[in-house]
Design a protein around this nucleic acid. Structure first.
Lengths: 117, 117
DNA sequence: TCCATATTTCAACATTAGTTGAAATATGGA
DNA sequence: TCCATATTTCAACTAATGTTGAAATATGGA
């Protein structure tokens, strides 16, 4: 992940509405949530939500999949973890401080169903 | 830290120039770097750098202190760590996945020289 | 004091991001 | 097929962000 992708990912969640959406998806886990539910939970106008979801998808922070007439969105933990890793890399002039262990295995909504233990 | 502060912090580093500056400061550690050195390392015009530094300070991601005729900037690890914590809080629907241990003790450039162990 | 260096401020402008409401598209069910 | 629901697209507009160069301010040293 280069700096361009990192800033895009950060920019994606550097907005009240998108941060709210992203957190809802993080908390929803691999099952995700349909756009309508997100609209209901955030109170965003459908067109505005759609705009923000596109941003999140473009930044690779979120995945979408059609399911019947719903579109289900899921958080992409991998990208978030890569961002966290980048932010703490080379921290403190290379001094080995407490290492960052990023959160959550790759989502099971995708192909790889990697489960711990 | 509320969502407004989080988005401000994220927005502060969601920009190529500011991310570069922030990383340089993270790597520089508690000693920090003067504005001029940052201008040299990033190639930013002085007025542009000044603008971005103000953003970083405003977002509480960076501290500044006058030192002779230089202004020394330092990264504020505490804020970064709070942001990392927020992003992974309540992850996976509350499932206790690998916990995030954020990076670096509070900087010693400030008053509190809290060292672990 | 006067000068050189370090940094910030300002105004003008250019670019990008976000919001709104209406219309378009897609899907499943009667 | 026709209708209702779910979501996205579009165009117009508003607001926020970022860039530039010149001028202003502050500091230390000769």
């Amino acid at each position: 992940m280069d700096t361009h992708e990192i800033t895009r990912a950060l920019g994606a969640i550097a907005h009240e509405a998108r941060l709210a959406v992203f957190r809802l998806l993080v908390q929803a886990g691999p099952a995700g949530l349909p756009a309508g539910k997100l609209a209901e939970l955030t109170g965003l106008a459908p067109s505005s939500l759609s705009f923000h979801l596109k941003e999140l998808v473009f930044a690779d922070m979120v995945n979408s999949k059609q399911e019947g007439r719903f579109v289900i969105y899921t958080a992409k933990y991998e990208t978030m973890n890569a961002v966290l890793a980048y932010l703490t890399e080379n921290c403190c002039g290379g001094n080995p401080c407490t290492p960052v262990t990023a959160c959550c295995p790759p989502e099971t909504g995708k192909k790889k169903a990697k489960v711990k233990a």
